[in-house]
C-alpha cells in the first residue's frame, strides 16, 4: 500500500500502483495516475475512454474489448493504444483493480 499526494488530494494505491479503492476515482485522481505513467494532463478523448472502461467494469466485472471501447466512445479502432500506449495502462489510469496475469499477458504491450 502506498499513498501519493497530488494537487492537495491524498490517493491510496496498492503494491502494484493500482488505485486501492476504485470508488475514490475522479478527474484529479485520473490525472495523478496518468502523471505516473507519463501521460498527464489527460485530454477529453482520453477521459471518455476511461469513463467507458469504468462503466463496462461496473456492469460486467471485466475488461471491455478494445474494439468495443473505441466504438462506444466514437473514436478510431486503435484509440486505446493510440491514446494510452496499451490497454492495461488505460485500465490503471481508470482506477480499476489490477487485472489477472493472463489478461496482462494478452494486452500489455
Amino acid at each position: 500500500m502506498a499513498v501519493i499526494e497530488y494537487e492537495g488530494a491524498t490517493i491510496e494505491l496498492d503494491d502494484d500502483g493500482y488505485l486501492a479503492d476504485m470508488n475514490t476515482w475522479n478527474d484529479t485522481v485520473a490525472n495523478a495516475l496518468a502523471e505516473r505513467e507519463g501521460l498527464s494532463p489527460l485530454t477529453y478523448d482520453q477521459l471518455d475512454i476511461l469513463m467507458f472502461m469504468r462503466q463496462f467494469y461496473q456492469k460486467h466485472s471485466f475488461f471491455p474489448i478494445v474494439h468495443a471501447v473505441c466504438k462506444n466512445v466514437r473514436q478510431p479502432g486503435d484509440c486505446v493504444s493510440d491514446e494510452f500506449m496499451d490497454p492495461v495502462t488505460a485500465w490503471k489510469i481508470a482506477g480499476l483493480p489490477k487485472p489477472d496475469d493472463e489478461v496482462i499477458a494478452y494486452l500489455k504491450r
Partner: peptide, 20 residues
Amino acid sequence: NNLGMNPKALKATMESTEED
C-alpha cells in the same frame, strides 16, 4: 477460462462483436 471472463462479460462481448 484463463482470462477470468465471466459468462455475463462473455455474452456482452460476443454481442458487441456481432454488431461489429
